[in-house]
Computed example of a mutant assay.
Amino acid sequence: MGVVYLAALLVTLGCMLLLDRRFRLFFWRDAIAASVVTLVGLAFFLVWDIAGIAGGIFFRGEGVIATGVLLAPELPLEEPVFLVFLVVCTMVIFTGAIRVLDALRRRAGRGGTP
């Protein structure tokens, strides 16, 4: 039962990557830029988490669905996986929204209804 959260994160991350692959939105559009954005986003949020932990704001919950493995005090193994999911999900949604809005603008420009 201790890997349920980690497994759920990995499955949902996989689903985001499948959407990305299908519509070529982020990694399948420009793998180098996507890798840089993902690593910078992960680093930013890890620094944020570490600052919150050091300030006594963030605490690790005692969940039976978590692995219990800590990378640092109050920093569970699942946290960086969640942060990568957060960055990838955000970028897939963002790039997908840009594509949809561009298509709507082109359609409206041709005299179609949006």
Results as ranks from 00 to 15, higher is better:
F44K: 04
T113Q: 15
M91G: 00
F85I: 00
T67W: 05
L101F: 14
R24H: 05
F27T: 00
T12Y: 05
F58H: 03
L75D: 01
F23K: 11
T95F: 04
G109A: 14
T90M: 13
V3I: 15
P80C: 09
L17W: 08
L71S: 06
A43M: 15
E79K: 02
R106Y: 08
L46Y: 06
T90F: 12
R110H: 10
L70Y: 10
G61L: 12
A51M: 11
G52K: 13
L70C: 03
R22F: 13
M91T: 01
F58N: 01
V84K: 00
L70H: 05
F44D: 08
L77T: 03
R106G: 09
F45S: 09
L9V: 06
R29I: 01
T113V: 15
V84Y: 01
L6H: 07
F44I: 12
A8S: 14
A108L: 08
I32M: 12
F27S: 00
R24G: 02
I57K: 12
V84D: 00
A66R: 07
V36G: 00
F44M: 13
R22E: 13
G112V: 10
L42P: 00
R29F: 05
G63V: 10
A72T: 07
V64D: 12
T113R: 15
F26R: 03
I57P: 02
V88R: 00
T12L: 09
D20K: 02
P76W: 01
L86S: 08
I50W: 11
R99K: 15
F23A: 12
D30A: 14
I57E: 11
E62H: 14
F59G: 09
L6F: 13
L77H: 02
L70W: 07
A51N: 09
P80N: 05
A54C: 05
A97C: 13
G2S: 08
V37I: 13
R22P: 07
V81S: 02
A43T: 15
Y5A: 04
L10T: 05
D102F: 13
R24A: 07
L77G: 03
V92N: 00
T113N: 15
A108P: 03
G111H: 04
E79Q: 04
L104C: 13
A31C: 14
V4I: 13
G14N: 14
L25I: 08
V47G: 03
W28R: 09
R105I: 10
W48Y: 06
A108E: 12
L17V: 07
A66M: 13
D102P: 07
V69L: 08
A34M: 04
A7S: 11
R60S: 08
V36M: 04
V37Q: 01
L13S: 02
T12N: 09
A31E: 05
L77I: 07
R22H: 15
D49V: 09
D30I: 11
L42Q: 01
R21C: 13
I53T: 04
V11H: 06
C89A: 15
G96M: 06
L104E: 14
C15E: 15
R107V: 06
F27W: 06
G112F: 10
G96K: 04
A34P: 00
R110M: 14
L9T: 04
P73V: 09
Y5R: 02
G112W: 10
V36A: 04
G52P: 04
T12G: 05
T90S: 15
V47D: 03
L75Y: 03
G56P: 02
G56L: 08
V87F: 01
L75V: 06
R99Y: 09
I32H: 11
